[in-house]
Design a protein around this nucleic acid. Structure first.
Lengths: 208, 208
DNA sequence: TAAAACTGATCAAACGTTTGAATGATAATT
DNA sequence: AATTATCATTCAAACGTTTGATCAGTTTTA
């Protein structure tokens, strides 16, 4: 049975036009080339504003980058809706998988910032990315613990290995897309099949 | 039963000292900061050679980066030993997992180059990284096809989703380490347990 | 002694940031 | 009601620094 969920993920809107334009234009640029791969002139030009506005509003290029990451990861850390749902543990794992797919589809840049910071961390890693990731992993660990105390899950499984396996299955699928597009059909139409597939393998793996 | 394998992975050694020093010094720098995050002066200084040697031997910074990636991914693409082994399909998947873990442990920079190019691709992506990744995925797909024709595996599974799930479980574990070190024990001593764990889940998922 | 390896100095271009002036709207003063 | 002062915002220009690359010259090697 498919769990119907409504994930409300409002987009942050700055009060100021110039400031907003900079963030909106910076997202795809930073996501594609990284912090050091984009120049302030490129950013300002893409936003259609004067380049000094970057320093004025964000204190510099790194400030703009931090603002972009803050906005992007505010979405990732929102797990309350999942946590508070009164469903069984397996369904909670499915909710996480569905939320992840939904977020990556809505925001195609999120995963790039995510993995870019994991591989080439900037100052933002410790302040923004690491806490967000730990939050997600901790939620998954708590869910697994619930499944254990319910005596639904196998008790011979390592909790961290198990939840990272689930997270890995769904995240790696999207991460690999640029390289495997010719080998694998990554069309959004297949998402439902992918989710069922992952949950199928995971369920067989963890159930008693 | 654990499959004992000997993975011979010789390290490329340049005939020239200056050239070799540059590559050796460049690996951790490029891996940590990316192509744009390191300057030629930093590279030359770390290698203990004159700055102009980068252009002399590699035609420029990008040339050195390409040389580093070529060396790194020569290891990743070496799958012949796995392919030619006369073992059943499930054991072949386990060989892949073991080889992956072994390579990431021997070369802690490999995964970083790998994911860095996936998120922020340079000119090397199409020429070096993409072919290497496709090679690995194709090998896994072939192995799955063998398991299907042996009637060992479930025939209702999507082959690509299945092999990407396996690859995701093992790769994501290492990718996430910088963020989850406080939550998850990533010690090499646990690798054997991790491999068994992943193969356990995977086996239950794919077997008839 | 010719070729290869290497050096220090130098180059133009690009970098991120800062400046001081100009703008227009709002608040305070007369 | 008219004038002045203050404010945040925007701009073009220039700042000093760093970038990657080059080149003429020197040393080393064969």
């Amino acid at each position: 049975m498919i769990i119907e969920i409504l994930l409300v993920e409002e987009i942050f809107v700055a009060d100021n036009d110039c400031r907003k334009n900079l963030i909106v234009a910076a997202v795809p640029l930073f996501a594609a080339k990284g912090l050091n791969g984009v120049s302030v002139r490129e950013l300002a030009s893409a936003a259609g504003v004067n380049l000094s506005m970057i320093s004025y509003y964000f204190g510099g290029k790194e400030g703009l980058y931090a603002a972009v990451l803050t906005e992007q990861f505010a979405i990732l850390g929102k797990l309350e809706e999942i946590e508070q749902m009164e469903v069984d543990t397996l369904q909670k794992f499915e909710l996480y998988v569905r939320a992840t797919v939904s977020r990556y589809r809505r925001n195609p840049y999120l995963l790039r910032f995510y993995t870019s910071e994991l591989t080439n961390p900037t100052a933002c890693f410790e302040t923004i990315i690491k806490p967000a990731i730990k939050r997600v992993v901790q939620m998954l660990l708590d869910t697994f613990a619930d499944g254990l105390s319910d005596r639904k899950f196998r008790d011979d499984l390592n909790p961290t290995d198990t939840v990272l396996a689930l997270a890995g299955m769904i995240n790696f699928y999207f991460l690999l897309e640029p390289a495997t597009a010719e080998l694998v059909d990554h069309a959004p139409e297949r998402d439902e099949q992918l989710i069922r597939h992952i949950m199928d393998i995971f369920t067989r793996g963890v159930l008693r």
